[in-house]
């Protein structure tokens, strides 16, 4: 994939991740810190966390076509780097103040990760349906 194509894909990922983080903050907040009142500045946190979450995507970049095995390895590595990056960022930013919320945090990151992959899969499935219709047309 070209660098420009990679940047475009990550920009799209960014907005999907921000949506996922919004949902995650709402769910985590309601369960672990329901009494906290947030100000307007809280609206920036999903945008900032989303930007931090996109950075480890560099692990997935390759100029040449990766094999399925290679891609699976990169995906696993990406998830690991993503979790470590976000946990580190959480501590530095003061979001993770207790050890007890690290595990739910890791799970939420995993859920947002799967959510992003799912959205991509749904978009690609729709493209595949269009391609199959096009194929039927030229084969008739």
């Amino acid at each position: 994939m070209s660098l420009l194509g990679f940047v475009k894909k990550n920009l799209m990922d960014y907005f999907i991740i921000v949506t996922g983080i919004n949902v995650a903050i709402a769910v985590l907040g309601m369960n672990f810190d329901p009494d906290t009142v947030l100000g307007y500045e809280a609206y920036f946190s999903p945008l900032i966390i989303g930007a931090v979450a996109v950075l480890p995507s560099m692990v997935l970049y390759s100029r040449r076509e990766l094999s399925v095995k290679g891609m699976l390895f990169r995906r696993a590595l990406h998830l690991l780097v993503l979790e470590l990056t976000l946990i580190s960022f959480g501590y530095v930013a003061g979001l993770l103040t207790q050890w007890t919320i690290v595990l739910p945090f890791v799970v939420v990151v995993l859920v947002v990760y799967v959510f992003t992959l799912l959205v991509h899969y749904l978009i690609d499935s729709r493209t595949a349906v269009e391609i199959n219709k096009g194929l039927r047309r030229i084969q008739e």
Binding site: V68, D124, I138
Partner: peptide
């Protein structure tokens, strides 16, 4: 003649494609 370059090393005959499905990382 409906031969399409689908990857760096493959030229596929679109008239012989039964269906397309999503694979990993935006590939099909």
């Amino acid at each position: 003649r409906k031969f399409f370059r689908c990857s760096k090393s493959i030229l596929v005959n679109l008239l012989k494609v039964e269906c397309v499905k999503p694979a990993m990382n935006g590939r099909f």
